[in-house]
Design a binder for these strands. Structure first.
Length: 610
DNA sequence: GTAGGGTTAG
C-alpha cells in the first residue's frame, strides 16, 4: 500500500522533472527500508533520468543486485535523455555479458533512437537485423523508430519500406515518415503523405514545415504554413512557430518575420524560450540587431541558445566588443557555453583583428570548457590569422589541422593572400582550391584575380572556361529589397526593370558625384573578356545597386535601406555603397551570402574584408 | 521502462 503511494510520487516527480524533490523522495524511500522493493528501484532510475540526474541514476543502477530489462531500458533511456546516445550504444552490450539478458521491444526502440540521433547507419542496421531475428519483430513502435533512423541517415526509401510494414500506423509513424521525406528533399512525397494521412494533426504539419526549412526550402515551407493556417489547425504548441521563424530568418525576410512575431504574440507564445531564440536569430539575420537585442533582454530564463544567438548576431554585425561582453556576462551567470558559442566568438574576433583574444578563446574552449574544436572552429581561427596578416601561421594551420579543409576554408586563406599581396602563397592555395571544383562564383573571381596578379594567363583562361561551363547551371545573382508594402527582386543588367529611367537617372547622378570624390571603377570584378567601358557598364548594373537605388527612390525617407543578396557582394559595389551612404546620408544594410555590411558615413562594418 | 514534430555555426 505504502509502496504504491511512493511509486505514484516517483512517477509524478519524473513528469514534473523536479530534481530536488526527486532526491528527497529517494532519501525518504531509503529511510523506510523499501529501497530494494520492486518496482521502486527501476522507477527511481527512471525518475533520475527524466530529472536530468544521470549520475544518480547510474549510481543506483550499478548497485542493483537484480537488474531486469526494465532497469536496462530505464538506464539506456536516461543516456538518450542526457544527449549521450554514444554511451547508450556502448553500455548496451553489458546487458548480455553482465546480466545475461536479451533486449525487449522497449530496449530496441531506445537503441534505434540513439542510432538515429547519431545518424549512425551501420549500427542502426545492426540493431535492425537483431530486431528482425528477435522473437518480437512485429512491434510497431520499434518500426516507427526505424523509420526515423533511416530518414535521419538520409535514406527515405529505406524508411518507407519499414513504414509500409507498420500494421497500425499512428500519428508518430506518419510524422516520422513525413519529416523524413521533407528533410531529404522529397517535397512532393512529403506533401502527398500528409494529404493521405487519415487525421492530420499539428505534429504532422510541423514535421512537414520544419523538414522543408531544414532542407533549405523556406518558400515551400511558408506556403505550407499558410495552407495550415487556412485549414484552421489549432496551434496548441509553439514547435511550428520556431521552425517557420527560422525559415524567415534564412530568407532574411524581415516583413514576414515581423508578421510571424505578431502571430506569436496573438497566440500567446512570447514566453516560449524556443520561440524567443528563433526570434533573436530571425531579427539578427534580417539585419535588425536592435530588435534581436530587445527580444533577448526580455527573456526571463535565457539558455545557452539565447546567449549564443545574440553573441553570434552581434559578431555577424561587426559588434565584436558587444559579443565579448555578452560572453563574459553569460559565463558569470553560470551557464556553460557550447561549441557554437565559440564559433561566434572567434568569428567576432576575426572581424576586428583581435588576434590574441581569438587565439586565447580557442585554447580556453579546449582547456577550460572541455570542448574539442571542429572544422568550423579551425576555419574561424584560420580566418582570424590570415586576415590579420599571419599568413604563414595560417598556411601551417590549414596543413596540420585534423580536418579536411573545404572550399570555404581555402577561399578564406586565398582572400587573405590577395589582400596582403602574397602572390606566391596565393597561387599555391589557388591550385588546391581549383582542384576541389569550387561551387561559388565568387571563388572563381578570386581565383582568376590571383592568377592574373601572378601573370599566369593560361590559368586565368582555364578558370574562365570552367566558370563559363557552370555559370548557366548556377543561380544568377540577385538582390531583394523589402519596403514593407512591396518586395522586389533585381537581377543584374537593365532588362525589364521597374522604373528603369528613374533608377538610371539616380545612379548616373550618384556616379558623377562619386567620381568627383575620387571613385575609379574596379573592373577586376568582371570576369568576362570585355572592353574597359563595357566592364564599367556591367558593374553599373549590378543587382545590389539597382535595389539600393530603388530603395532610395521609393522607400520612406530617412529609414534604413535593407537589401539581401544571394551571392557575395562584389568589391566595386562595396566601394560604391560606402560612397553612396555618405552622399545621401542614409544607412544601407546589405546581407550577402556570407555576412552583413552596414554602410554608414562612407564606412562599412565589415572593415572592408569579406 | 519504448517511437515523431522546435532554437544557435565560416
Amino acid at each position: 500500500m505504502f509502496c504504491s503511494h511512493l511509486l505514484r510520487q516517483l512517477q509524478a516527480c519524473a513528469r514534473r522533472q523536479s530534481p530536488s524533490q526527486g532526491k528527497e523522495l529517494h532519501a525518504q524511500i531509503i529511510k523506510t527500508g523499501l529501497e530494494q522493493c520492486p518496482p521502486l528501484p527501476n522507477n527511481i532510475i527512471d525518475m533520475y533520468g527524466k530529472c536530468g540526474l544521470l549520475q544518480d541514476a547510474l549510481h543506483l543502477f550499478d548497485q542493483l543486485p537484480h537488474r531486469d530489462p526494465i532497469s536496462w531500458a530505464s538506464i539506456l533511456t536516461a543516456h538518450n535523455l542526457a544527449n549521450l546516445p554514444h554511451l547508450t550504444l556502448s553500455i548496451f552490450p553489458s546487458m548480455f555479458t553482465l546480466d545475461r539478458l536479451q533486449p525487449d521491444h522497449f530496449i530496441f526502440a531506445t537503441l534505434v533512437k540513439a542510432c538515429a540521433s547519431l545518424a549512425a547507419l551501420k549500427q542502426g542496421k545492426q540493431v535492425h537485423a537483431r530486431f528482425i531475428l528477435s522473437s518480437l519483430p512485429g512491434d510497431d513502435v520499434v518500426k516507427s523508430s526505424l523509420v526515423d533512423m533511416y530518414a535521419k541517415c538520409g535514406l527515405p526509401n529505406e524508411a518507407r519500406r519499414v513504414f509500409d510494414l507498420i500494421s497500425l500506423k499512428n500519428s508518430v509513424s506518419w510524422t516520422a515518415m513525413i519529416s523524413g521525406y521533407a528533410r531529404n528533399g522529397c517535397n512532393l512525397d512529403a506533401v502527398e503523405l500528409l494529404k493521405a494521412m487519415p487525421v492530420k494533426d499539428l505534429s504532422s504539419w510541423t514535421a512537414l514545415i520544419s523538414g522543408l526549412v531544414q532542407n533549405g526550402d523556406e518558400i515551400d515551407a511558408l506556403c505550407i504554413f499558410m495552407e495550415m493556417r487556412k485549414d484552421e489547425i489549432h496551434i496548441r504548441d509553439p514547435f511550428v512557430l520556431s521552425s517557420i521563424i527560422g525559415g524567415a530568418a534564412n530568407l532574411a525576410a524581415l516583413e514576414i518575420g515581423k508578421q510571424l512575431h505578431c502571430l506569436v504574440i496573438v497566440l500567446g507564445y512570447e514566453s516560449s524560450v524556443f520561440v524567443s531564440n528563433a526570434l533573436i536569430d530571425m531579427y539578427a539575420k534580417c539585419s535588425d540587431i536592435l530588435a534581436a537585442k530587445y527580444i533577448f533582454d526580455n527573456i526571463c530564463q535565457k539558455d545557452v541558445v539565447s546567449w549564443t544567438s545574440i553573441i553570434t548576431g552581434a559578431a555577424q554585425h561587426g559588434q565584436a566588443e558587444e559579443a565579448l561582453t555578452l560572453f563574459d556576462e553569460m559565463v558569470s551567470t553560470g551557464l556553460k557555453p557550447n561549441e557554437i558559442t565559440f564559433v561566434g566568438l572567434i568569428y567576432a574576433c576575426s572581424h576586428v583583428g583581435l588576434v590574441s583574444k581569438g587565439r586565447y578563446l580557442f585554447d580556453s574552449m579546449i582547456k577550460d570548457f572541455g570542448i574539442s574544436p571542429n572544422l568550423k572552429h579551425y576555419t574561424c581561427l584560420l580566418d582570424l590569422l590570415s586576415r590579420s596578416g599571419h599568413l604563414t601561421e595560417a598556411n601551417n594551420l590549414i596543413k596540420t589541422m585534423p580536418f579536411e579543409p573545404d572550399e570555404a576554408t581555402w577561399a578564406a586563406l586565398l582572400s587573405a593572400c590577395k589582400r596582403h599581396g602574397s602572390t606566391q602563397m596565393g597561387v599555391s592555395v589557388a591550385n588546391h582550391l581549383l582542384s576541389l571544383k569550387p561551387q561559388d562564383p565568387s571563388t572563381y573571381i578570386l581565383l582568376s584575380n590571383t592568377y592574373a596578379a601572378a601573370g599566369m594567363w593560361d590559368s586565368v583562361s582555364e578558370v574562365r572556361k570552367v566558370m563559363a561551363g557552370m555559370v548557366r547551371k548556377k543561380e544568377p545573382g540577385y538582390s531583394c529589397i523589402d519596403l514593407g508594402k512591396e518586395t522586389l527582386v533585381f537581377y543584374a543588367g537593365e532588362a525589364s526593370l521597374p522604373v528603369k529611367d528613374e533608377i538610371f537617372g539616380l545612379l548616373k547622378e550618384l556616379d558623377t558625384e562619386m567620381r568627383k570624390r575620387g571613385y575609379v571603377p574596379d573592373t577586376s570584378f568582371v570576369l568576362h573578356d570585355l572592353e574597359q567601358q563595357e566592364k564599367e557598364r556591367q558593374l553599373f548594373w549590378h543587382s545590389e545597386r539597382l535595389a539600393v537605388a530603388y530603395g532610395l527612390l521609393k522607400g520612406v525617407p530617412g529609414t534604413v535601406i535593407r537589401v539581401v543578396k544571394n551571392l557575395r557582394i562584389c568589391g566595386d559595389c562595396h566601394t560604391v555603397l560606402k560612397l553612396i551612404s555618405s552622399i545621401v546620408e542614409r544607412e544601407i544594410v546589405v546581407r550577402d551570402a556570407n555576412r552583413f555590411h552596414h554602410f554608414k558615413d562612407g564606412r562599412c562594418s565589415c572593415s572592408d574584408f569579406w
